[in-house]
């Protein structure tokens, strides 16, 4: 079976509000960059299929995939939508290429949260209409806060640990030109951040940006043609824990653990803590970074926080993450995707 590689990547946006481009124009910009990065490939000729990752209510358009093909060169070609995060799309592209039918697959994903005037109401529409929505939660971050408390209480994680995650992410972002919210925070700054939903402060919650990202994946033969430096996808995993918030593990992201196990099995990784050189983990909330480091097997359960404080250099090297700012929430708290390269 063919190997699968990433041969091109492009982006546009990554600022709190992109005022001068529609989401379609952002997609076009990102796609142009990605195709140039993939050795100047022509999407009209060289690409077999396109996947767009989006959700209707994020877009404000029903059946939003209608608007996917043109800006990425996919009109009258094989295009479809995955409702989920973009790593899940990468997983689909991986399976498509592995099947042997497709050689080059493009994955597009974008978010334009600044277009949403009623973001909180829209997010609340994701709650179960019978068991959760009637509560009318004043802030949907409360659900993450429930997870945060469960995790912190069970594993002895304190605010000092969250502060460290926040500080590290903002510092790392200073070296990333796309990190809108990067900055240098002092030890005391975290405590000045207002409590939003105890135990989470404003600083613990990633802020939104508008952005589009396009990734080009290819089979081994096509990758060798397109690129001298393909990055091989060794494994991909995605798992759902459950649709039912009440039935999921509040203290530990089991879904991420299971997804990682799938990916490691494909990649033949036996000891991720030793074998994984670096990781970009979902840190849309500060505590999520700690949880995910553990779920991915990069640290034993409940020990990420202490590692972070005790061996900041090791930890920073093992898990440098982009600024929390560069994440925008997609997907649910009960779902996870892992894709070590």
């Amino acid at each position: 079976m063919t190997k699968v590689a990433i041969v091109g990547l492009g982006w546009s946006g990554f600022s709190p509000e992109v005022v001068d481009m529609s989401f379609r124009e952002m997609m076009f910009k990102a796609a142009q960059r990605a195709y140039e990065d993939a050795g100047g490939l022509d999407p009209r000729r060289d690409v077999d299929a396109f996947i767009s990752c989006q959700e209707d209510f994020w877009e404000g358009i029903s059946i939003a995939d209608e608007f996917a093909p043109d800006p990425i060169g996919g009109a009258m070609k094989s295009v479809y939508t995955v409702a989920g995060d973009s790593l899940q799309c990468v997983g689909q592209a991986y399976a498509m290429i592995k099947s042997g039918l497709f050689d080059v697959v493009v994955v597009e994903s974008h978010g334009k949260p600044s277009d949403m005037l009623t973001l909180h109401d829209v997010m609340s529409m994701a709650l179960d209409p019978i068991s959760l929505r009637p509560l009318g939660l004043a802030n949907i971050h409360a659900l993450a806060a429930l997870e945060a408390r469960a995790y912190m209480a069970k594993y002895g994680v304190g605010p000092q640990h969250l502060a460290e995650v926040v500080e590290k992410a903002h510092r790392a972002g200073l070296r990333n030109p796309r990190a809108s919210y990067a900055g240098r925070l002092n030890a005391g700054d975290y405590e000045l951040s207002p409590v939003v939903v105890d135990p989470l402060r404003e600083a613990d919650i990633a802020k939104f940006v508008d952005a589009a990202v396009v990734v080009v994946l290819a089979s081994e033969a096509a990758a060798r043609d397109l690129s001298d430096t393909p990055v091989w996808v060794e494994g991909v995993g995605w798992r759902t824990e459950t649709s039912t918030l009440e039935l999921h593990d509040w203290a530990f992201p089991l879904h991420a653990r299971m997804a990682a196990e799938d990916a490691y099995r494909q990649a033949k990784i036996a000891d991720p803590a030793k074998e994984v050189g670096f990781a970009e983990v979902d840190n849309r909330y500060s505590f999520k970074e700690l949880q995910h480091i553990e779920a991915l097997g990069l640290a034993p359960r409940g020990s990420a926080a202490e590692m972070l404080l005790e061996e900041p250099s090791t930890q920073a090297a093992a898990c440098p993450s982009t600024s929390a700012a560069a994440r925008w929430p997609r997907g649910s708290p009960s779902k996870s995707t892992a894709s070590p390269d």
């Binding site: 295009v79 479809y80 997010m123 759902t240």
Partner: peptide, 24 residues
Amino acid sequence: VHMKGEYLADGAGGWHKPVVRVYV
């Protein structure tokens, strides 16, 4: 229901499994 794929997963047999929702 916003994010209907996540919502439907349990009924579709997605308990602890790889689940994806596609649409066109």
